[in-house]
Amino acid sequence: MKKRNRGFQIFSIVFLAIACIMIIIPFLLLIISSFTDENALMTDGYSFFPKKWSLGAYEYVFGSSGMIVKSYGYSVIVTAVGTVLSLVITGLMAYPLSRKDFRYRNFFTFMVFFTMLFNGGLVSQYIMWTQLIVVKNTILAYIIPNLLMSGFNVMIIRNFFSNDIPFEIIEAAKIDGSGEFNTFLKIVLPMSKPIFAAIGILTALGYWNNWTNGLYFITKPELYTFQNLLNRMIQQVNFLSSGSTVINSSQVKIPSVGIRMAIATIGVVPLMVMYPFFQKYFAKGLTVGAVKG
C-alpha cells in the first residue's frame, strides 16, 4: 500500500515539474532573446540556443536612449507615491467602517460596497477624468484614476480590523484617555501590519504593472512609464509588420528585434528577483481578496 502512495507522489512531482517548466519557458525565451546577437535573431528567430550571444541590446538601452531610463524612473515614482497614498486613504476609510459604535457605519459601508457591484464603465470614467477633472498628460493620471482606492481593499482591511483586533483593546485605550485617531495610529495600525503588507504588495504591483491609465490619459511619449513605453513599442512592431503605415520619424524610435526583448527583460527581471521575498504576502493578498470580499 505504501508503494502505491509512492507512485502517486512521484507522479505529482513529475507533473508539477513539467508544469513549472512550461511556466518558466516563456520567461527564459524572453531573457535569452535579449542576449542574442541581432543577426542571429534575424536568421534563426528567437531561440533558446542562440548561435551568437551579445550584449548589444543592453548597450543600446543604457547607452543611447535616455527615454528608457526616464520611463523606469517614472514607474518607480508612480509606484511609490501611489502605493503610500492608496494605503493611507484605504486604511483611513476602513477603520471607521469597522467600528460597530459608529452611527453612520451602514451608510458609508454601503457606499463603498455598491462600487463593487456597479460601475459607470470606461467611457464615462474617461470623460470624467478628461473633461471634469483634467488629469490628462500629467503624472497624476498614473496615480489617481481607478487605482488609488478599491472598494475590495477597503472591505478587506475593514474585515481585518473588526475580526482581528479585539474591541477591548480599543475600549481600554479610550478609558485611558486616548483619542480615536491616536488609538488608530498607535494601537490599531501596528497590529495590522500583515494585512497592510499584503494589500500593499498587491497595490504596488498594480501600479507597477498598470498600462491602462497611460493608454487612456497620456499622449506625450516623454511622460511614458515603463509599461507604456513597452506597450507603445509592441503596437508599433505590429503596424511595422503589417506594413500598412509609414512610420513617422518623430515618433518613438523603434528598436530592433533584440532590443525590444531587452527592454521587456529589464521590466521582468527586477520583479523576478524581488518576487521570492514578497511571495508570501502576495499569495496572502490574493487569497484574502478572492475568498471573502
Partner: peptide, 20 residues
C-alpha cells in the same frame, strides 16, 4: 512560487512573450 510567477507580470510583458 514558480506557479504564481506569471501573476506578477503585466499583460504587456505577456504579449511580448507571446510574440517571441
Amino acid at each position: 512560487t514558480i506557479l504564481l510567477l506569471p501573476q506578477v507580470v503585466s499583460m504587456v510583458i505577456v504579449a511580448y512573450m507571446a510574440y517571441s
